[in-house]
């Protein structure tokens, strides 16, 4: 394990702050841009096809062995449910994916949108985790190791899509709960996640992320009247594994269109890059100040009490 030498190294540097320099510069270098694994899989979600049947929710519940829902999955009244502060439903510890209804202005039929982890190329949750509980797998899934999670919930702060949920009601084993792309049971073996297989409408297209972008572009090109000319997730926050096509402007379907193309970690890099500088410059700078200040006339005094101590004992 690569951690061993570093662990020893860190243990040695507990007292001396300066020794931490090397670790920190590793950190800053580790923060390079990552384009995603070339063979990473993804899902293209075509919102124009979704009819809100919630088969995906039901399939997810079964596959991930989630607790019984409050209402049957065919009960459309959940679409009128609002949570705290008038919010639409969001994934939580009992449901890794939810479908919400939107009524875009001017449209004669409602629009449904499936929410789940978007499996970012450069996940904010992963980069914010101080115990490295998250992994972006080669297959494209962002998975989570609950055995090391301390429960700081920084990943929930960092996720731009507000996906990770926490089992707050658990006293002794609260953990993060989120969609894992059915990694353990399906994706690992090349199979599509349960929701994709369950979808009757072909809303969800599973494939290599690169291929999905081409498919999305082709659909837009073939039916420019049907689609907004944008694949949400192609570039958002550095690109996501799950991407969306929509017939209405994305903000009308509840998407945050202000996220920009940079991965979330880019916002933190400015600070991370100052860390090795502070570690390198401060010791000399302040020791220098100390020496200067002593020369100004306190030199002998500074020593006086030490010598007194020695005399006394």
């Amino acid at each position: 394990m690569k951690g061993i030498s570093r662990r020893r190294f860190l243990a040695a540097s507990v007292i001396g702050g300066a020794a931490t320099t090397l670790t920190m510069s590793k950190k800053a270098m580790g923060a390079g841009t990552f384009e995603g694994y070339p063979e990473g899989m993804g899902v293209l979600v075509d919102l124009t096809r979704c009819v809100g049947c919630r088969s995906c929710e039901a399939a997810c519940n079964k596959e991930q062995k989630l607790p019984e829902p409050a209402m049957p999955f065919d009960d459309p009244s959940v679409f009128d449910q609002t949570g705290h502060g008038g919010q639409k439903r969001r994934p939580d510890e009992n449901a890794y994916t939810v479908v919400n209804r939107y009524d875009p202005p001017g449209a004669n039929h409602p629009l449904f949108r499936k929410l789940q982890c978007n499996h970012c190329n450069e996940p904010a949750c992963l980069t914010s985790c101080f115990v490295s509980a998250y992994t972006k797998t080669r297959e494209g899934a962002v998975v989570y190791n609950e055995k090391v999670c301390v429960g700081c919930r920084n990943c929930m702060i960092a996720c731009p899509f507000q996906i990770p949920a926490y089992s707050y009601s658990s006293a002794f084993d609260p953990v993060i709960k989120k969609c894992i792309f059915c990694y353990d049971t399906r994706l690992k073996y090349g199979k599509p996640p349960a929701c994709v297989e369950a979808c009757p409408q072909g809303v969800l297209t599973f494939g290599h992320r690169k291929e999905l972008i081409k498919i999305g572009q082709d659909r837009i090109k073939a039916r420019p009247d049907r689609y907004v000319d944008h694949i949400y997730g192609e570039t958002e926050v550095g690109g996501t594994g799950w991407m969306y096509l929509s017939g209405v402007p994305f903000e009308q379907a509840g998407f945050d269109t202000t996220l920009g193309k940079e991965p979330i970690i880019s916002n933190v890099k400015e600070f991370l890059s100052t860390v090795p500088m502070v570690l390198a410059i401060w010791p000399a700078l302040f020791t220098g100040f100390h020496l200067l200040a002593r020369k100004k006339g306190h030199a002998d005094e500074d020593h006086s009490h030490e010598s007194q101590e020695d005399e006394k004992s």
Partner: peptide, 10 residues
Amino acid sequence: SFGTAAVLFL
């Protein structure tokens, strides 16, 4: 487990 790229680690 070391999440060395995380601010919280620091």
